[in-house]
Amino acid sequence: MKDIYALYRHSLAGLRVMIGAILLLGVAYPLLVTGISQVSMPWHANGSLITSTGAHTTSSSHAVGSQLLGQVDDNPKLFFNRPSAAGDGYDPTSSYGSNLGPNDPRLVKAIKAVQRTIAAREGVPVSAIPADAVTSSGSGLDPAISPAYADLQVARVAKTNGLSEATVRRLVAQNTHGRALGVLGAAYVNVLTLNIAVEHAAD
């Protein structure tokens, strides 16, 4: 009984402290961070949106997407993304990976199917297809592909757009990001910015 009364007293003190915590940490702190971010870094804070010419924008009505989010692309004239397990593909309202295990027969089947599709589309043997091309990312929103997968698609994109392979290769290089600080993470090619550049060059 004494313990229960003590717990009650400590809880009342806890309630008073918690109200203070909510005002400071749940209201003042996020609003201050939002305020500073919106004033000093509005493009980043609103989702790194870009227009069809690749220009930065903070208005969703002018944007074709976010530089940070991959999107569904099934246009044979453009570079293809990785498979995606987010909703019906690249759906930011249901971000996730497949969560299939490393020996899961369903994953084996899915990988084989994607390999066949890519081999037919690019006219290459299955052995030439890099791993990122046939696997879905953790977020299902991966904005990037490996330089190897981009390289694999250069011939097709050049042909379908009437561009030289050298031109397309140059565009790939311009949209390739090396490892951060030279050692962090992995090199990648941003697919959305690359495709915008391809469309621009083909016009």
């Binding site: 990785r82 990976g97 497949s98 969560n99 299939l100 295990g101 490393p102 020996n103 899961d104 994953l107 084996v108 990988i111 084989k112 390999q115 297809i129 890099p130 791993a131 990122d132 046939v134 696997t135 879905s136 990312s137 953790g138 977020s139 991966d142 904005p143 990037a144 592909i145 490996s146 990001h177 962090l184 993470g185 992995a186 990648y188």
Partner: peptide, 25 residues
Amino acid sequence: GAGTATRLAGAAMEGKETRFGEAAS
């Protein structure tokens, strides 16, 4: 990269982001 699916794909990239790769993941 052990595992039947992993071997078939060529690397343990299922569920991993391109910008991070295997090591940073």
